[in-house]
Design a protein around this nucleic acid. Structure first.
Lengths: 202, 202
DNA sequence: TATGATTTGACAGCGACTACCAATTAGTAG
DNA sequence: CTACTAATTGGTAGTCGCTGTCAAATCATA
């Protein structure tokens, strides 16, 4: 997660740089151990030792063991990009563009880390549950931005159904198309959106 | 959760009856303490003491503290009813009928327990996350049954899009209709399914 | 260099949970 | 009814994730 350090606030001094470095080290150590021996079998002590910090320091950087895996920086980028889309686009078009622009710009190594995190999440029920909570939060945010764009209230029923469906499809595809490239995912998302627009016929 | 005892296998002896009674007592004690002092502030020891069992017995009945709240007997009924719908109905219609039929037959006191469980779930992030996991599992089952009904494979793209959308809608409603009764939630879910059928226009 | 601010390490303790063994209860056969 | 077996329960030790506290270490500044 070297990108994490790069994407943090501009380093202001040794202290800040050291913090970013420590956070990245902890997370890298954790992800490595999880892959090697499994999430449940990996203890906080092991992670802390591998990252050369104490367990209490671990908890200063990550509130819970789960958060090492769950930390995700792309979602806020998607929301930001969604907000920045030209106002004349429909909300669905705008969301398409936002997802596309974020994933098009992801370096391969970052995408690889995302993939690995997703594999971990799929393999562990507690992580899945947490991830679903994140997804639900995303639904809310997308509904808010879509409301801004369409001049509706964010709590309108139709809007919330739509936002839920859109994000459900997005995450559903991400979590089932584990071998897809970013480009493929975007294409699949597009096809899914199209289907949502025309209606689910089952 | 007296319905739990009633809905268990027919009591075959003192042993079975005692088990059902203990399980119900643990769950009732837990729900009562959670309401009185909050989920996090209630310990397993307190629950066990209130139910007059030992903590190790608690864990024989419920795998985790969360499961006391999460245990839900309506989902299997919905799946069963979904499977039993006439084959000429579309899958979405069949699902709507199934949900309706199960909830229409629930006694009011069961609804009240469902409502209380939902309040607890909405007040506690870990419970929310677990609940979302249950919903996701339910959607997967629904997709499987829908595949059976429509003669498709459950991993077909269209079916996966539908499942994702369904999950997204359920999440969206679950976490935003905070004041809705369980019955209202069912009605809203139904309306959401209808919207999925006709298409998302944003 | 001295001092104050910040970060880290160590440790005690809590609660959820696991696993084991002895005690208790229920069921069955003679 | 008694004796024996099977099933269930209680008690306990221990692990792990996590919280909070305090002392030590490190960084920043005058």
């Amino acid at each position: 997660m070297s990108s994490l350090a790069d994407n943090a606030l501009p380093p202001l001094g040794l202290r800040e740089r050291k913090k970013a470095k420590t956070l990245a080290a902890i997370q890298a150590a954790a992800l490595k151990l999880f892959r090697k021996q499994g999430y449940d079998a990996t203890t906080i002590e092991q992670i802390a030792a591998a990252a050369e910090v104490s367990p209490s320091t671990f908890f200063r950087y990550f509130p819970t063991k789960e958060d090492v895996v769950l930390l995700d920086l792309t979602d806020p980028l998607v929301i930001e990009a969604f907000r920045a889309q030209p106002p004349e686009l429909s909300a669905i078009q705008a969301l398409r563009n936002a997802v596309r622009s974020v994933f098009d710009q992801l370096p391969d190594d970052e995408f690889e880390v995302i993939r690995q995190r997703e594999e971990l999440i799929l393999a562990n029920p507690e992580l899945q549950a947490r991830m679903l909570g994140e997804i639900a939060g995303m639904v809310r945010l997308v509904a808010d931005v879509a409301a801004e764009r369409t001049g509706r209230r964010a709590d309108e029923f139709e809007l919330r159904v739509a936002a839920g469906a859109l994000m459900g499809v997005a995450f559903g595809l991400m979590l089932t198309e584990l071998d897809a490239s970013p480009r493929d995912l975007i294409a699949l998302f597009d096809a899914g959106l199209e289907q949502l627009e025309t209606g689910i016929k089952l």
